[in-house]
């Protein structure tokens, strides 16, 4: 693979996707410390939001240590070079949250829908595109669930609503490099040349780096990851590793590798509630194609009702659940427990 001379934009997910393994309990102070270090290291873009995006604070997904507004205000005002993004899932957050985040100083809004439901993002992308200088991104989750052609139609819809960048998101960490190449290459060939194209991976099958490289080769220019892989499931593409690989391959990320390594080792890993890795359940997510943030919910329900978390996750995959359906985990666990006679 020859990527020599390619220039890409790295987007760190520790302070958003990383909220999942942290049960949304990262403090404002931890966010500010981490974000400042990332600014120092030259990471161009970082995401700061509840794990489930703006307005995610809920019984269903978890109440965070602070509000989106508190996190965003605190981080945005400390940034010298680094830009801050926020995530918004229509159906959870609204345009009111979007306006609030813009007022807090974000420069990028990412509007996320399931890979077949792009039309629910119209209200939000259209409004975002009206702001001057607001980088407007459409983000199609669970992109393994449809083929390249159908995915392209949905990406085009987001492009038409006003997204200047669209993402192919492997929320379940299910894809293998060929799956990524096929989707990214078709999108790159068919979308407007000025539309940026991104890839967001999860490391559940250990494919974070390989998939991200495949995405770059096929034409993506934005890559998501998180230092020390702090993200849902087995985490996102471990960023310090990806940056090192890019460095060796002559891909320009503009990031100071050693500083990135230091943040991963000295700030992120010590902050972790548990070591984010490809454990049995995270691997099951990837293998079965299940939304990565279901991980801790399945573990908790398994423990509460005397079940195997792997069985729960496999069944959630079989039922083709999508992002946001965390409520179905306890519901399913109750059904399984009744069948098994544990309740």
């Amino acid at each position: 693979m020859n990527l020599e001379g390619r220039k890409i934009t790295i987007h760190d997910m520790c302070l958003r996707d990383g909220m999942h393994p942290m049960r949304h309990q990262i403090t404002v102070e931890q966010m500010v410390t981490t974000a400042k270090a990332m600014d120092e290291a030259g990471i161009p873009l970082i995401e700061v939001t509840h794990g489930d995006g703006l307005g995610g604070a809920s019984v269903n997904y978890g109440f965070p240590a602070a509000s989106d507004e508190e996190y965003l205000t605190a981080v945005c005002k400390e940034m010298k070079q680094t830009k801050v993004s926020a995530l918004l899932l229509p159906g959870i957050g609204t345009v009111d949250h979007l306006k609030m985040a813009v007022d807090c100083g974000i420069s990028t809004i990412r509007v996320a829908t399931h890979c077949t439901e792009a039309d629910v993002s119209e209200q939000h992308l259209t409004m975002a595109a009206k702001y001057d200088n607001l980088d407007t991104v459409g983000f199609l989750m669970m992109a393994h669930m449809v083929g390249p052609d159908e995915l392209l139609q949905q990406l085009k819809m987001m492009e038409d609503f006003g997204a200047n960048c669209v993402y192919i998101t492997d929320s379940a960490g299910y894809m293998l490099p060929d799956d990524v190449s096929a989707r990214v290459a078709l999108a790159r060939a068919e979308l407007r040349p000025e539309t940026e194209l991104g890839f967001h991976g999860h490391h559940n099958m250990g494919m974070g780096i390989a998939n991200s490289l495949a995405a770059v080769e096929a034409g993506a220019n934005r890559i998501d990851g998180s230092l020390a892989g702090l993200g849902a499931g087995a985490g996102n593409t471990p960023l310090e590793v990806f940056i090192a690989v890019c460095d060796r391959m002559g891909v320009d990320t503009g990031i100071d590798l050693f500083k990135a390594m230091d943040i991963a080792e000295d700030l992120i890993v010590p902050m972790m509630d548990h070591i984010v890795r490809v454990d049995r359940d995270a691997l099951t997510l990837g293998w079965a194609g299940v939304y990565s943030s279901f991980l801790l919910f399945a573990k908790r329900s398994a423990e509460k009702y005397g079940l195997s978390s792997r069985d729960i996750l496999v069944e959630l995959g079989r039922r083709r659940t999508v992002g946001g359906q965390e409520d179905m985990i306890e519901d399913l666990a109750l059904d399984m427990a009744r069948e098994k006679g544990t309740i």
Binding site: G91, R319, G324, D327
Partner: peptide, 23 residues
């Protein structure tokens, strides 16, 4: 109050499901 809506494209289509949490 807080409301969340999820749209699921599974085939065959799933029956409407509603979860209610009260504190």
């Amino acid at each position: 109050g807080k409301a969340i809506i999820i749209i699921n494209p599974a085939e065959p289509p799933l029956m409407m499901r509603d979860t209610v949490h009260c504190l």
